[in-house]
Computed example of a mutant assay.
Amino acid sequence: MRLRLINSGAMTFFDVRIPGLKMTVVQADGQDVEPVTVDELRIGVAETYDVIITPGDAAYTIFAQSMDRTGYARGTLATRAGLAAAVPQPDKAEWLTMEDMMGAMGGGMAGMNHGSMSSMDHSNMAGAGMEHGNMAGMAGMAGMDHGGMAMAGASSQVRHAKTEFGPSTDMRVDMPRTSLDDPGIGLRKNGRRVLTYADLHTIGGPIDPRGPAREIELHLTGNMERYTWSIDGLAFGQSTPVHFRYGERVRVILHNDTMMTHPMHLHGMWSELESPDGQFQVRKHTINVQPAQRVSFLVSADALGRWAWHCHLLLHMDAGMFREVVVA
């Protein structure tokens, strides 16, 4: 049986599994991928996955828990009406690690005494898996105020726009994580085989064999206390369009300088995600960028006109994490 999973929610990441059944992923965002068999997958707003399952003569629960573990949706797969299967208990909520919040630098701060960071204030932050729209407090980090500070140990490879330094941006990450094999907060070492972007390989390779003629780097920014969201520190109404030249091949680099995962969606053109070493990975229209993560993808500007480019979390998009793209 082939199931098409579509996250049509407004603000929720779902972690989906069918206890008792393996799922073989065969499409991502409508594009064929090399089959990969997993127990569970995380699906961001606007993402789609097609999976193949082989059910027996029994009932099964399709279980989709929210990232912050405050709720779930469930459905039933059965051979006849009236059958139902047990519904699992949601997993325990987990807090963000220092590496989640500070990138590669955070790995060296794992033993840091949070009490020495009492000036931080993200008391409205959903630390437990970052279920967007249900903001819970973050244990051990109450009162921390980044005040727009850049993380120490800055890498010369990271370029921050001047517009990132202001009240709408409460942190910047100078040593972002680049790996694609991290399933994300709440899914690590849970005893199940969880899908990651590193598992996804689009069949047939890239749609365009050319390398990029230029690069565009943008930072996903926000202020957790003010709950403002932007790109390079500028909300949509303050920004100018991003310009692509018609027919060009361009590399886009996104840095997530926030503590939330953002499903970034570029309308009109495919985003071809690259591995950390620059190899073609997977073709998608929506790419989840985890906290303190850097991703890069190639775009062929083959669609003339004005296009939307935004975080697909509704409140983030409405608050300003949105840019216009002009292809001319």
Rank of each mutant, 00 (worst) to 15 (best):
residue 91 D to S: 14
residue 18 I to E: 04
residue 229 W to Y: 10
residue 310 H to P: 02
residue 128 A to E: 14
residue 150 A to I: 02
residue 123 S to R: 12
residue 138 M to H: 13
residue 109 M to C: 12
residue 137 G to R: 12
residue 151 M to R: 00
residue 302 D to Y: 02
residue 148 G to W: 01
residue 306 R to D: 12
residue 199 D to P: 08
residue 195 L to E: 11
residue 62 I to L: 15
residue 248 E to L: 03
residue 160 H to M: 13
residue 40 E to N: 08
residue 262 H to T: 01
residue 280 F to I: 04
residue 45 V to N: 08
residue 93 A to M: 08
residue 221 T to S: 13
residue 204 G to I: 05
residue 159 R to Q: 14
residue 272 E to K: 04
residue 197 Y to A: 03
residue 250 V to R: 01
residue 321 M to Q: 14
residue 70 T to G: 10
residue 4 R to S: 09
residue 223 N to Y: 06
residue 3 L to T: 11
residue 298 L to T: 11
residue 297 F to I: 04
residue 178 T to H: 03
residue 244 F to K: 00
residue 257 D to C: 13
residue 322 F to A: 06
residue 102 M to F: 15
residue 217 E to D: 06
residue 144 M to R: 04
residue 62 I to S: 07
residue 116 S to M: 13
residue 326 V to R: 12
residue 103 G to Y: 08
residue 218 L to T: 01
residue 108 G to Q: 14
residue 224 M to P: 08
residue 314 L to K: 08
residue 305 G to P: 05
residue 232 D to V: 00
residue 246 Y to N: 07
residue 6 I to Q: 11
residue 186 G to E: 07
residue 302 D to V: 13
residue 47 E to D: 12
residue 152 A to W: 05
residue 176 P to M: 04
residue 200 L to H: 03
residue 90 P to Q: 09
residue 170 D to N: 15
residue 89 Q to W: 02
residue 314 L to F: 05
residue 226 R to Y: 06
residue 172 R to E: 00
residue 87 V to Q: 06
residue 263 P to L: 07
residue 114 H to Y: 14
residue 103 G to P: 09
residue 8 S to C: 07
residue 71 G to D: 14
residue 142 A to C: 03
residue 185 I to S: 10
residue 87 V to N: 02
residue 51 V to F: 01
residue 17 R to E: 15
residue 71 G to E: 02
residue 194 V to K: 05
residue 166 G to I: 02
residue 13 F to C: 07
residue 8 S to I: 12
residue 92 K to Y: 07
residue 129 G to V: 08
residue 131 E to W: 01
residue 115 G to D: 15
residue 304 L to M: 12
residue 244 F to V: 00
residue 107 G to H: 08
residue 139 A to S: 13
residue 183 P to N: 03
residue 167 P to M: 11
residue 32 D to C: 00
residue 75 G to V: 10
residue 85 A to F: 05
residue 33 V to F: 00
